[in-house]
Design a protein around this nucleic acid. Structure first.
Lengths: 338, 338
DNA sequence: GCCCCGGCCGGGACCGGTCCCGGCCCACCA
DNA sequence: TGGTGGGCCGGGACCGGTCCCGGCCGGGGC
């Protein structure tokens, strides 16, 4: 039961007061080099480590950032987390996690936020995929800087936002198809309760309208199963098969590929296909999937960066990250005879 | 600058001492119901929340578990994290994150562990994919319970382990192939510096030896690209194409599928294919992939469970989780003429 | 020679809880 | 009626840092 050494112990060892030890530990200038050396030797000898809990108590600075993950609709969501953690570490912060799986009432989120601030976190990043979860934040007075990693917006000037520009991503995908000569582009949407899915629909629609092309929209939920089902549905529809399909994400694109394989529809000869995410292995589907890449790690990093700036006194802001079109082999010009 | 109310404030409001407030908050029995009610009313009125940092300082119980993620070779690694978090929350713990990306020296890990204990975490879960990272733990005296989520072992009786039985998984896969009648089963390994890949090799070899069947092994790295490359290599090898391929994971299986498609090798007619992981969408590859499912969330949950038991005084132990074979359409009996 | 100033260091009061210890009051029993 | 025991509550000493304030001492200007 011999507990770890404290500043007092180090002070005794070095023949100084605990204050001086504190100064040395914190790099305070007014300590004679010789004294400093003596203290450092004592620290070394005793294996002293500063108790960050005590530090947090008095100084009210815990050096930790809270991260709350709400919903798990987004396939690549956990990836963002790693990005957050890496960036936070870089900036000298710890990461305290709090997820809310499943259905979450709006009250749930504020409760989670509360518990996080109870923990004395200095800032909070909310990674959410749907608006319901965050709308609880709308009127809230925030005790600490909060950044929301998500598309869409909530009426609260104190909130920062960082998002991949989903609409732009969708436009990139559709424009690519349009450039290839497609005039009828179906969109198999993701779960429409998520911001991302909706923004992609918007982008698809806008680009289509701009070009005066035709569109068909079927609602899915980001799962490969939904892509599969919807693609079958597309094949049996009276409207006839479109020449190109823009899937809500790569998972759905996989489902589409599977369904088309069953139906004998060839990609990209019969219909072109574009996904979204550039998930791992997307380049090794058959055919290699043309998709829109979003850099999730970067997303997490930006959130931390924003938070750190807010901690420094900057105002809340919103930041958009541009996604990137990755052209592979699932897209081609439509058949001339179609 | 009006800081949040403390126990003192609540005590004043309720006309009792801060001690009584503490008792109420902690559900201590010896408080008269009427007093308790008065205190609770005061708490409600003031919006009091217990400062968990102060609590942690004095009681040495922070109610948080540290999680360190080392390496990111394993494709599904982030998933484990969610499982850990969910289980931890269930058990009343917070999760503090600390990852070590990229190459990590052994010293790195102990440093990370140190910093975590500085944070007064009560227990630590180490999620690692390779033995190098953990071997630093071999001789270490642990200040808190530590559980390692990983296959393999490190000579330290104080350490708990929880793992999916990779070898069993591999045997399941190979036995399935054997049962189908295959006598030449190639294995395209994952990154051999990881425990998982090695255990799968062992299982494959053992099962093969037991049946007196033939095997070919090519070393990959868990990436789809390596699966792709190795599958091509298999096609051009003098030894001739095996009738079945056991891929290091589903990603590699995707690569194999892509390569076979290029070569005109049909799955499962010409060669059967089994993956590992049952990644999202594996059932929608073409053909739907037969694979070995590991339940990552369960893995994380078990780690927490183990840790909580150790906190309760139980000795360290190791726990294996059985994976499950998922038969789909990428496996079939070999051609009789081959 | 005196005073002021600045570099260095120490005293001690917190931060907001936890928990041991001890005191009060009252019921019950002899 | 005095003793006693138990239920309820309060005093106060921590936990291990941070940081304001104040003291010591030596050097330089007048």
């Amino acid at each position: 039961m011999n507990r770890p050494p404290g500043m007092m112990d180090v002070a005794r060892e070095a023949g100084v007061s605990h204050i001086t030890v504190s100064r040395v530990v914190n790099g305070h200038p007014s300590v004679r080099p010789e004294t400093r050396a003596r203290v450092e030797a004592a620290i070394q000898k005793l294996g002293y480590r500063r108790n960050s809990v005590a530090r947090a108590l008095k100084s009210r600075r815990s050096s930790t950032i809270g991260v709350v993950i709400v919903g798990s609709e987004l396939f690549e969501l956990p990836r963002i987390l790693l990005g957050v953690e890496t960036a936070a570490k870089q900036a000298g912060y710890w990461v305290s996690l709090a997820s809310r799986q499943g259905e979450s009432t709006t009250g749930d989120l504020v409760e989670t936020l509360q518990r996080l601030t109870d923990q004395s976190v200095e800032a909070i990043a909310v990674v959410a995929d749907n608006p319901l979860a965050v709308e609880a934040l709308s009127g809230l007075v925030l005790e600490v800087p909060v950044a929301v990693v998500m598309s869409g917006s909530v009426p609260n000037p104190g909130l920062s936002f960082v998002e991949v520009d989903q609409e732009l991503g969708a436009r990139l995908a559709v424009r690519h198809l349009l450039d290839l000569g497609h005039r009828h582009i179906a969109h198999l949407t993701g779960a429409l309760r998520t911001f991302d899915a909706r923004a992609r629909v918007d982008g698809w629609q806008a680009e289509l309208a701009g070009a005066g092309a035709r569109g068909t929209m079927l609602e899915g939920d980001f799962s490969a199963e939904s892509g599969f089902r919807l693609a079958h549905q597309l094949c049996t529809a009276r409207t006839g098969l479109p020449t190109a399909v823009f899937a809500g994400n790569d998972q759905m694109a996989m489902g589409v590929l599977a369904a088309f394989a069953e139906r004998g529809v060839k990609v990209p000869q019969d219909v072109s296909l574009v996904g979204f995410d550039d998930m791992k292995g997307a380049g090794y589907l058959v055919p290699a999937l043309t998709t829109v890449r979003q850099d999730f790690a970067h997303l997490g990093g930006s959130a931390i960066e924003l938070l750190v700036r807010m901690l420094g006194g900057d105002a809340a802001q919103r930041q958009k990250i541009a996604p990137e079109l990755v052209v592979r082999h699932s897209t081609a010009a439509p058949r001339v005879d179609s």
